[in-house]
């Protein structure tokens, strides 16, 4: 792998707080190594801004290894940047070349209000989980782990859905700001394991009701969510959610 350095122009959304109108600021950064991660490039810029006595760019990030789901930048027209199956923190600068202009925006959705600069409030996702994204089992009630057999394929499919990191890229990418991929991943995860069975009807209905209440749009199956999902959660989960929802709506007895 050949390494190189590059000079870049950054156009970054700056917004002091929720109420501020906000706008783009342009920065140039020089001598960026292709070995850096994207966030390390922002670190370099921020260090310079602090040195100049300016307010550094606020952005969410934590684990920097693609699993916590905290990072959330919309880079050059794509959530988490140009690479597939990647979070912003895993994006490396070799994805860019010398002289590039990079536009960085926050997730845009009314259900994700901007807190500051590139930081948004995703607490709506927590409230959707509170509406039913769990199995009601108190600590200490469990039977032996091997008492219930789960076919490997079901376990694998449940895992694939449960791999969702709740970053919100699906919402950011969706032209309708729908959270259905997030929601369907959870419903699928819990519908695919037998332990999730007793609550599956109310789960699908309640979580969708909460999603609507939070102000997310509805799904029109464009597939943008699946394309940008850093964990490559399949849009098929949405179809499964539709089935769960339909069945629950037709058969629930209350």
């Amino acid at each position: 792998m050949e390494h190189y350095t590059m000079n870049l122009t950054l156009k970054v959304w700056r917004q002091k707080n929720k109420k501020d109108k906000g706008g783009f600021e342009t920065y140039t950064v020089n001598g960026i190594s292709s070995e850096m991660s994207f966030l390390e490039m922002i670190d370099v810029l921020n260090e310079r801004l602090v040195h100049e006595g300016k307010d550094p760019i606020a952005f969410d990030h934590d684990c920097r290894e693609g699993i916590c789901g905290m990072c959330s930048m919309y880079i050059n027209g794509r959530p988490h940047g140009p690479w597939e199956g990647t979070t912003t923190c895993q994006l490396h600068m070799r994805a860019f070349k010398d002289g590039d202009t990079i536009v960085v925006e926050p997730w845009r959705a009314n259900a994700f209000p901007v807190v500051k600069d590139l930081v948004v409030d995703r607490s709506a996702f927590d409230r959707i989980i509170q509406a039913g994204g769990y199995i009601s089992v108190n600590t200490g009630n469990a039977v032996d782990a091997n008492a219930t057999l789960i076919p490997k394929d079901d376990a694998d499919a449940a895992f694939a859905a449960a791999a969702c990191i709740g970053c919100g890229a699906c919402v950011a990418a969706c032209k309708n700001s729908s959270a259905l991929l997030f929601l369907s991943a959870k419903v699928s995860h819990l519908a695919l394991v037998p332990q999730g069975n007793p609550e599956r009807k109310s789960r699908a209905l309640d979580m969708i009701a909460q999603m609507d209440k939070e102000g997310f749009g509805s799904c029109t199956a464009t597939g943008a969510c699946e394309a940008v999902c850093p964990k490559e959660i399949s849009i098929t989960n949405i179809a499964r959610l539709n089935a769960e929802y339909g069945r629950a709506g037709l058969t629930i007895d209350k």
Partner: peptide, 21 residues
């Protein structure tokens, strides 16, 4: 009509065909 109201500020760089037809 409902879906359009879910994003008041649109993106500077639209996603275009990156991810959907």
């Amino acid at each position: 009509n409902q879906n359009r109201r879910k994003r008041s500020i649109s993106y500077q760089v639209p996603m275009g065909n990156k991810g959907s037809k």
